[in-house]
Design a protein around this nucleic acid. Sequence first.
DNA 1: TCTGGGGTCCTAGGACCC
DNA 2: TCTGGGGTCCTAGGACCC
Length: 420
Amino acid sequence: MFALVDCNSFYASCERVFRPDLKSKPIVVLSNNDGCVVALTKEAKEMGIKMCDPWFEIEKEYTKKGGVVFSSNYELYADISSRVMDILEQLAPRLEVYSIDEAFLDLSGVNNCMDLYDFGIDCQQKILKWIGVPVRVGIGPTKTLAKIASYGAKKYPATNGVVDLSDKKRQERLLKITPIGEIWGVGRRLEKHLNAIGIRNAYELTQLDISYVRKRFNIVLAKTIRELKGEICIDLEDQPITKKQIVVSRTFSQRVTNQDLLNEAVSDYAARAGVKLRREKQVCKLLSVFIRTNPFRKQDTQHRQMISIPFINPTNDSRDLMYGARMAMKKIFKPNFQYNKAGIMLSDFYDEEVLQLDLFKSEHRSYIDKNLMKTIDRINKTSNGPVTFLSQGIKKEWSMKRELQSPKYTTNWNQLPRAN
DNA sequence: TCTGGGGTCCTAGGACCC
DNA sequence: TCTGGGGTCCTAGGACCC
């Protein structure tokens, strides 16, 4: 049996933890660059705000009506998240941290000693009391059913935010009122296709013939159906899996036409990606860079391009990555376009310790170089940083804006909350 | 004027090999 | 005159997730 514990309006709830005065106020949290809404409370939803609404379109009306807004504060959210996960870890034998605000729990054994609904309520109360974040709990024999249970817990207030789908009859009842698009693994595209052949809810989906689905659609949807019927196809992943790619990309705060500035941006992203790669203890063999103009500006001529360049010797040295990024940029940059986003992607990873070197080339990063990177990383973890490379830029005119951010209450000594 | 970022998995199609 | 077929690997792009 699985449980899915899901934090309600997570980013917005994090903001409330240190601002009890916002208890029943509408709150929205914005994406990077204060671009669009990525989290919103029930109260904001009731005002007609939707996920992904562009901020500039709703700002005036929303603030006039007394809505509260924050730029995203990922340091705060990550810290609150890890505190929630710590508690969950103590409540169940196995835990999979699925995202910043969700975790799957393996409940085998738990159902022998307590009622699962009571377990859910207990979870909820502990996290609310110890952290201050409201959660809902969905319980079911497969992950996909636990997800459906969680949907039910959100949608129907009478459940008190906990739904246990152990019972087959109860499963069927909820599946019959769950729209197809709410199923885990069914996105907008599939929803449209399924609706077109007359499938409207989760129950109707389970009535389809599996081999037909595999032929007409794909193997992923076939798996989803088996999961909806109670057959476990997706296991709990409680071991941290090594990443297969690392991406750093940002929309610029303003449009950029100048190649020097683009070089600065991708160098900065390359250095950030390097930090992540070294944290994974991996080296990479392939680096890709992409740039694009703003697709929302129909009046501009569009340009988007991506290019990959291989390293002969796999590396995680920021200097190699930055050099590669600039080489790539040189190849794809075209003048007279108004770029609004660039990004870098690292892939083809190998373990740092078991490097395969090129047979005919001996130059590779030395022990001293490795220590240099380690030292920089260590300094940057303290408040003595940051140490950066000149090519990452100083003014960073392209870098994003975040004008409405709350303090880093839990991760910065100078921003601790005060009790008066 | 202003529209996010970071991932995974699957598939189709091309290059290449024997 | 008539010019195959099966396999692998790689990449780009799509769909999905939070």
